[in-house]
Amino acid sequence: MNTRKYIDPADMRIELKTGISLRITLRDGQVYDDVEPRRMFPISNADMFILIVDKEDNELFIIKDLKQLDKESYKNISTALDRYYLIPKIREIKRIEEKFGSLKWWVKTDRGDYEFDIQHRHSDIKLLSSGRVLIRDANDNRYEIPNYRKLPRKSQYLISGDL
């Protein structure tokens, strides 16, 4: 028996208020206002098991699969989630410099060009079996390479030593 409250995505309509704040109306008329979504699996399954919390971060219920939502609701909650979770996707690595064990990366991402430092090259760059690479910078910001094998050749060469 589940003690968590799972609500069927087909039974709700989700509207985006401001920022990451949502209004969720259930089929029975119940309204959850000013609520926010959180991913239970932000890395492995971003669209599944979305926790809905109130302003004080109290858990309200779980939406098991966002893809079961209607198109508009899906778009709204996805916008809020994309805003909450900032994981720029690296499209190109322009340069990597190493200084005393720390790395400085110059990258092109889906959110523009950026540069950041990596403190621990062995633990902060994680290669998953699918070719996906998860990166964490010295300030705890996250980045992702969806598939390093699809990066430009020079980028692949630059990152190859750390995978």
């Binding site: 959180r38 991913r39 239970m40 699996f41 932000p42 890395i43 492995s44 098991f49 926790l51 971060d57 858990e59």
Partner: peptide
């Protein structure tokens, strides 16, 4: 659930 990466 309060950890940034939750179950991940």
């Amino acid at each position: 659930k309060r950890l940034p990466d939750a179950y991940d």
